[in-house]
Simulated scan of single mutants.
Amino acid sequence: MKKPAHGPSIYYATDKNVFDALSQHRVDLATVRQLFADRNVLVSRHTDKSELARYFSRLVHDFQDHERIAGRLGVASRREKVTALEIATPLKVEQIESAIAAVRIELERDGDVVQVTKNGSDVTVVVQYSLVDYAKTEFKQVQHRDGVVQFIKEGDSYIVRNSQNDYVNNVREAFLACVEKRNSLTLDRRVVSLYDVVVPSLRSEFFYKLIHGLEGMGKYDVTELYVYRSTPDEPEADDEISDDNTTTGDADGDSRIERIALRGKGVEQSDELRDIISKSADFYTIRTVWMVREAMGEGHVFELDAHFDNPADCTGFSYLVRGVYPCEGGLVTRKRRSPRPDEVERLSSLIEKASKKYADEIWAKSTTPKT
């Protein structure tokens, strides 16, 4: 798998770049003082940060200075959505390990760091890689990220779960292609998709079933709902779903709303949503953020996010376990915490099973001839 070539960068950090970077609020006074301390220069506790930044920017800077400043200003990584596919073709864990070992050599040759762990028949690959964007300012050009690809044994099948982005998707495909090549077989891949379902109401029904149908969970609330209407001559869809209403106009000047975002409480039952659907049957749901509560156990509330990356075709299904609202003394707290790994694993499995089940049901319903 060939890593995209970057650079060389046409930028370098000038004195103005350094001054502007040190003046930002994300670089605190302690960091600026440490830059001077590393040069064995003492500064007064009463000296203003802007004065220190102005003085330091006129000095000669080395790689370590730039790395320390970039560490403060770099793009903060956030938890990415997860996508999954099922490999119905029977595989042995040794076949997967052999393919991973072969692709790993190429990844590490391109500068990535690859860690592989095995637990029985399950294999997890963590890829530490860098993305370079020269359109950003000098200290934000390099983004260091971790991508995860999991091979989870489930009966006679394997579930391949990975971070949803182009780079990690390509890494996953490199693993699977290597399995096919080394074993002279074609893998039977099954993904959650509504590509063949053209009726808008059925596409919305998929999300309705998903919201209410996680095993052992009850719907607690629906806080966000995104509806979409494709256009006949639609340009290529954006990677990110806009959080704002999007309106386009045709050559005659007529306006047309393509995307609408609804936020609040119980939005799936709101009058606004009914009004949208009643006025245009072309709208359908492409993303939802909702909460579910454990029917048994501690009764925690989990906030979930699911959507199709390609809204026009309803392909590229992905999801995220956003957070947990713990139940304490029988009451759900308002303070959200990050989910634990075991909670992410449990909710991920529930979403994957439910999404496959309901996608199959919707597809069968769309192909059933009306009597």
Rank of each mutant, 00 (worst) to 15 (best):
G253A: 03
Y319N: 04
K356S: 10
R336C: 00
E240D: 08
E258V: 10
G264C: 15
I351F: 08
R259K: 05
V267D: 02
V324D: 03
P339I: 06
A359N: 05
L304Y: 05
T247Q: 15
I286E: 04
Y358V: 07
T246V: 15
C314I: 08
S270Q: 01
P326Y: 06
S278M: 15
C314D: 08
H307K: 13
Y325M: 13
V332H: 01
D305F: 05
L304G: 01
G329H: 06
R259Y: 01
N245Y: 09
H300V: 00
P311A: 14
Q269F: 07
I362L: 11
R259E: 01
A261L: 11
T246L: 15
I286N: 10
K335H: 02
K279Q: 06
K353I: 05
V289K: 07
E298H: 05
S280L: 02
E303N: 07
A281P: 12
P341D: 09
W290H: 11
D313G: 04
S355D: 11
P341H: 11
D309G: 11
G297H: 08
G316S: 05
Y319P: 00
P311I: 04
T285K: 10
I276E: 00
Y319I: 05
V292I: 09
M291W: 02
R293D: 01
S338G: 06
D243C: 02
I286S: 09
A261I: 03
V267H: 07
R346M: 15
K357Q: 12
A306N: 08
A281R: 14
Y358H: 07
Y284R: 08
N310G: 03
K265C: 12
L331A: 11
H300L: 03
V321M: 11
V332F: 02
D254F: 14
K357R: 15
A281E: 07
S318N: 12
A237K: 04
S349M: 13
A295N: 13
R340I: 00
R256A: 01
T285L: 05
D239L: 13
E345G: 05
A237R: 01
A295E: 10
H300C: 06
L262V: 08
P341V: 06
M296E: 14
G323A: 07
C327W: 00
L331P: 00
S242Y: 00
A237Q: 12
F317N: 06
G266T: 01
A261T: 11
S355M: 11
L331E: 00
L350S: 10
I277F: 12
A281S: 13
V321Q: 09
R259Q: 12
N310L: 05
E240F: 09
D313M: 13
A295V: 10
G323N: 01
N310V: 10
